[in-house]
Design a binder for these strands. Structure first.
Lengths: 247, 247
DNA sequence: CGATATGTTGACATAGATCAAAGTATGTGG
DNA sequence: CCACATACTTTGATCTATGTCAACATATCG
């Protein structure tokens, strides 16, 4: 019998249990999933477009980007994932990958066989809800990104992205006090916001000039959260976080 | 005992069964879901941001748009839905709506209580997969829209949207021979592509001029599908349709 | 310590936005 | 079935946010 806090799968529990409390039996069942660790170097893909994966990755450490490559080398990032996320959980029910998952930093991840997950979900049907829900939150974030990229000007667009990434990290205990890791390049920010890296550079300067962000050494600092939120017209509802922060 | 073909829930079966074949027992269980019909006038919302729905809608006829309203009346559409879709299935596990679902045309829909769906999914755990999968395909489409809006120029962007909407309708038997309903205004197209209605108008003219589309009377005609696909660099993989068309 | 990736800056180009007005459908009530 | 109101489409003139190209500066890392 594992104690939840020290187990490598424990970040997953924290996330899944954030809305509906998991029973002890459920927690134990999840902790007993077979999982083998692997390290990816920055720049490596965990899964690529066209693959037919037979397992899911649970991120234990590092950042993962979800991206598509289009015509003439254009690239669009559609999500950033951090520790506790299972970015390819969808592979459980969609047989072919329609995009790539790449390591932005060095990444440690646990691989969980689809087999084992499927068996677990049939054996304990109540567990479908929290896993399914996790993919629904990802979808909600995609919707917000469509709006962000489609309708917000560059300044607001970047501010909005920073709000999201900060809150996502707060939710899993990776950030607090207006500071968090932000291991992305300006090219990555451009590919996430549908802008050019040159324009990102200039817009970042304006955000700094206005005292909304500090960004150096792969860390983000937000001196005045309410002002950043206002500048982005950020409404966190789409993240579907527990209204009350998790212990 | 119902025969699947004549039942009002039968479009749902067609969709859910498109990948994994449903057993007779499963089909019957779905057909016995309680469902009450309702008609929405064009322009009405089926569900609004902030709502806490207690049921899902299954579209029987008409088109539904999924949209968010941002600053200064800006609007972003993130999906179009047609007969057979359950656009708010996510409500089953996300308690608060983070966007709106509105009727683009007059819409007939069936309301299915969450209660009944939850009970069904616990009783027949195998049914989680097809319903869950449906929400995953929606998510895959959102990802493609992020790329469409973020990185493709207007001409390609609109061409891409038309490819998607045509194929989606072919998949449920609403379109064939390069013709399909397209009951959207140029303002709607603008809000779906992150463009201006004026620019949509001009780009539409170019698409027409190049013989890629005809668009009148709320119907779309595609004279040369391969050429449209090429112009859009459209790859249908993200729709996760059965490779072989469903009977 | 040098190579390579990332960030910064300037000059210039353009896709797409904005504003404004005039056509053309479409639908409703009489 | 007409007439009028409203919604939608089209067009022109002009503007601007963002892109492109190119050079240089500064990190970062093996």
């Amino acid at each position: 019998m594992f104690t939840a806090s020290e187990h490598p799968l424990s970040p997953l529990l924290k996330k899944l249990g954030s809305l509906t409390r998991l029973s002890d039996r459920d927690e134990q069942a999840i902790l007993h999933l077979p999982a083998s660790p692997r390290v990816f170097a920055a720049g490596q893909d965990l899964v690529g477009e066209g693959d037919r994966p037979t397992r899911c990755w649970l991120i234990v450490e590092g950042w993962v980007q979800r991206y598509k490559v289009l015509d003439e080398g254009k690239r669009q990032i559609s999500a950033f994932h951090v520790a506790g996320d299972m970015p390819d959980l969808q592979g459980l029910h969609l047989s072919v990958m329609d995009h790539n998952l790449g390591a932005l930093t060095r990444v440690t991840a646990l691989s969980v066989p689809h087999e084992a997950l499927r068996e677990l979900l049939l054996r304990i049907p109540e567990l479908n809800a929290p896993f399914w829900r996790d993919t629904l939150v990802d979808a909600a974030i995609f919707r917000e990104w469509v709006a962000n990229v489609g309708r917000r000007p560059a300044y607001q667009r970047l501010a909005h992205l920073f709000c999201e990434l900060y809150l996502k990290q707060v939710a899993v205990g990776l950030a607090r006090d207006g500071r968090c890791p932000m291991p992305v390049t300006q090219v990555d920010l451009a590919d996430a916001t549908g802008l050019t890296s040159v324009h990102v550079n200039r817009t970042l300067r304006e955000l700094r000039r206005d005292g909304l962000i500090e960004l150096r050494g792969k860390r983000l600092e937000i001196p005045d959260w309410p002002r950043l939120v206002a500048a982005a017209s950020f409404n966190p509802a789409y993240l579907h976080l527990a209204s009350r922060p998790t212990a």
